[in-house]
Computed example of a mutant assay.
Amino acid sequence: MITLLSHRPTTADFYRVDVSYNLFGEYTVIRAWGRRGKAGRHMIAWFSNLREAAVAADRWHRRACARGYAPSESRYFDAA
Rank of each mutant, 00 (worst) to 15 (best):
M1P: 08
I2A: 03
I2P: 03
I2K: 00
T3P: 03
T3F: 01
T3A: 12
L4Y: 03
L4F: 01
L4K: 06
L5Q: 06
L5S: 05
L5H: 01
L5K: 06
S6Y: 06
H7F: 09
H7Y: 11
R8Q: 14
R8T: 15
R8F: 06
R8D: 11
P9T: 10
T10S: 11
T10N: 14
A12L: 07
A12R: 11
A12I: 08
D13T: 02
F14H: 10
F14W: 06
Y15K: 07
R16N: 05
R16Y: 02
V19C: 07
V19M: 06
S20M: 07
S20N: 15
Y21A: 07
Y21P: 01
N22E: 03
L23K: 14
L23E: 12
L23N: 13
F24Q: 11
F24N: 15
G25V: 08
T28L: 10
T28N: 06
T28G: 00
T28W: 00
V29S: 04
V29P: 02
V29D: 00
V29M: 05
I30L: 15
I30T: 15
I30W: 02
R31C: 10
R31E: 13
R31D: 01
A32M: 10
A32W: 02
A32D: 00
W33Q: 07
W33Y: 13
W33K: 08
G34K: 01
R35A: 08
R35I: 08
R36T: 15
R36E: 11
R36V: 12
K38A: 09
K38Q: 15
A39V: 14
G40F: 00
G40L: 00
H42P: 04
H42L: 06
M43T: 14
I44F: 01
I44Y: 01
A45W: 03
A45R: 03
S48Q: 14
L50C: 11
R51F: 05
R51Y: 05
E52S: 10
E52M: 09
A53C: 09
A54W: 04
A54G: 08
A54N: 12
V55G: 09
A56Q: 06
A56D: 13
A57Q: 04
A57H: 02
A57S: 04
D58T: 15
D58F: 00
R59V: 10
R59C: 08
R59T: 12
W60S: 04
W60Q: 04
H61V: 02
H61L: 09
R62F: 08
R62N: 07
R62D: 02
A64N: 05
A64T: 04
C65F: 04
A66Y: 07
A66P: 04
R67S: 09
R67F: 03
R67E: 11
G68K: 07
G68N: 10
G68S: 11
G68Y: 02
Y69E: 05
P71E: 03
P71D: 09
P71C: 05
S72H: 07
S72V: 12
S72F: 00
S72E: 09
S74P: 10
S74D: 10
R75W: 02
Y76W: 12
Y76P: 01
F77V: 08
F77H: 09
F77S: 07
D78A: 13
D78I: 11
D78M: 14
A79N: 08
A79E: 13
A80K: 04
